[in-house]
C-alpha cells in the first residue's frame, strides 16, 4: 500500500477556543473519507502532536462535508492571550497535521480522491 502525506489528500483548517485547538480535515470523496475514518484516529492525531498537545484528543465526524474534526485539549500554551508562542492561536495546527503520512489503498491514490497539485510541485 502506498504511503502519502495528508497534504496530498485533504483540506485542513484549525483555530482556538481558550487552551483548546479545534482542527478539521476534509476528504474529497466518500471513498477516501471512509478510509480516513479508519486510519486518522484520535489516537493517531494525539501521537502526531505529542510534544505540543498535553490533553486528550476527541474526534467528531461530519459526514455531509466529509469532515473529521479533532478537539485537542491543553494544546496552546495556556491559550492565546496567555501564550508565549508565535502561533498562539493554533492556526498552524492544520498545516502541521498535513505532515502526517498514512497508508492509502492503490485505488484511492489517484484522482479524484486527491487534492489538486500546485503547478510548481508537478512532476514532468
Amino acid at each position: 500500500m502506498p504511503r502519502m502525506l495528508l497534504r496530498d489528500i485533504v483540506q485542513a483548517r484549525s483555530g482556538d477556543k481558550g487552551n483548546t485547538c479545534d482542527l478539521t480535515i476534509f476528504a474529497r470523496t466518500p471513498e477516501m473519507y471512509e478510509h480516513l475514518k479508519q486510519v486518522v484516529t484520535a489516537e493517531r492525531v494525539k501521537e502526531h502532536f505529542r510534544p505540543l498537545v498535553h490533553g486528550p484528543v476527541t474526534r467528531y465526524e461530519a459526514p455531509t462535508v466529509l469532515g473529521l474534526k479533532f478537539i485537542l485539549e491543553d494544546a496552546l500554551g495556556g491559550g492565546a492571550p496567555s501564550s508565549l508562542r508565535s502561533d498562539n492561536l493554533g492556526k498552524s495546527f492544520g498545516s502541521n497535521l498535513l505532515r502526517l503520512e498514512i497508508e492509502v489503498p492503490e485505488e484511492l491514490a489517484r484522482e479524484p480522491h486527491l487534492m489538486s497539485v500546485p503547478p510548481w510541485r508537478k512532476k514532468e
Partner: peptide
C-alpha cells in the same frame, strides 16, 4: 464554493451536534 464554505462551517465550533 462548497470547498471554501465548509472550512469555515466547522471552524472553532467543537461538537458539530
Amino acid at each position: 464554493s462548497v470547498d471554501t464554505l465548509k472550512e469555515q462551517y466547522l471552524y472553532e465550533i467543537h461538537d458539530p451536534h
